[in-house]
Design a protein around this nucleic acid. Structure first.
Lengths: 105, 105
DNA sequence: GCTTACCGTAAGTCGTTACTTACCAAATCG
DNA sequence: CGATTTGGTAAGTAACGACTTACGGTAAGC
């Protein structure tokens, strides 16, 4: 099960978000992901480990290659947090606006 | 306008997420946010600056106190990213599942 | 079997960041 | 006006994180 905190940590790095973007059209092997990126292949491997621990990608062996794909679970985790937060925060926000003047407590 | 990358960076820190949680029911002054947290008040101020730069909170002066509240713009930024990513990634994911056998390209 | 391709891991380095204490400015209250 | 409350800023430190090069291990190809 993906851990919420791990999802936020994983998404905080720009390179990892680029990796996710590259996987969006479909699965890719590590070398294919690294090709065109500005960092080395081992760096990509390390990023993939973080993304995997967060439940954002999944992998499987394919001969000597290792193919990674988007894992919907991590995205679902984020969506759940956002949906819940969004709703109650917006309610509070509206209630605040409708409150008479500067009665902030 | 909140910058996408700043939103992810801001949300990556656990203490900042706790600050957001504390603001969820409604606006609070800096001292009230810091009270009960495990970090000092100046640390909270620094976190609030990061959250503000990301468009996740907004503030206004109220006498000598400074009141912070959730800013919907930052959350909207995140939601936009997630919605777009979610949709196309899930399409690719489904297409992958329905693909005959191991034809990974 | 030997070479080649592919990838994960180890170890070390450098920059960033979250935190603390100390200090200063501004508004309120007596 | 002086004292108090409130909070942002400065400076210094310690820990973390992203990166590199070097290495080892496994599957495929000749």
């Amino acid at each position: 099960m993906p851990y919420q905190s791990a999802v936020f940590t994983a998404l905080s790095d720009p390179t990892r978000r680029i990796v996710l973007e590259r996987l969006r059209p479909g699965p890719l092997a590590v070398g294919e992901i690294a090709r065109g990126l500005s960092v080395s292949r081992p760096a990509v491997t390390q990023h993939l480990k973080v993304l995997k621990d967060a439940g954002l990608v999944a992998d499987h062996a394919e001969g000597t290659r290792r193919v990674y794909r988007i894992d919907p679970r991590g995205l679902g985790q984020l969506r759940g947090w956002l949906d819940q937060f969004w709703e109650t925060a917006l309610d509070a926000f509206k209630a605040e606006v409708e409150r008479p003047d500067g009665e902030t407590r």
